[in-house]
């Protein structure tokens, strides 16, 4: 299982547009991707409601995990996505 920790760069946290872009990318990978706050229960990264309900705010860390072929590449691209201020783009 691949794991990454990343800090949310979006100035308004992981909601609305940033969350939608993240969920779309996670869904497009076709893998089982999960996202969690450190030490908390993970949620399905393809569920926009689950992702928004995490309430991950700007500057908070989240942990991504994925299984299967291409898990590392998928997580790298998701980390890259979350490291940008999606709302400012």
């Amino acid at each position: 299982m691949a794991t990454r920790t990343v800090t949310i760069a979006s100035s308004v946290g992981l909601h609305a547009r940033p969350a939608a872009l993240f969920v779309e990318a996670a869904s497009a990978s076709g893998l089982d991707v999960e996202i969690a706050k450190p030490g908390e229960d993970p949620v399905d990264a393809t569920s926009i409601l689950g992702v928004m309900a995490l309430g991950a705010r700007h500057g908070e860390e989240v942990v991504l995990t994925a299984d299967g072929d291409g898990a590392d590449e998928t997580l790298d691209s998701l980390v890259e996505l979350l490291s940008r201020d999606l709302d400012a783009e």
Partner: peptide
């Protein structure tokens, strides 16, 4: 368009 698409994502949410 972005708002409507994001709202459509909610309607398609497996969790719901």
């Amino acid at each position: 368009q972005q708002i409507l698409k994001a709202t459509a994502l909610i309607a398609r949410d497996k969790g719901l």
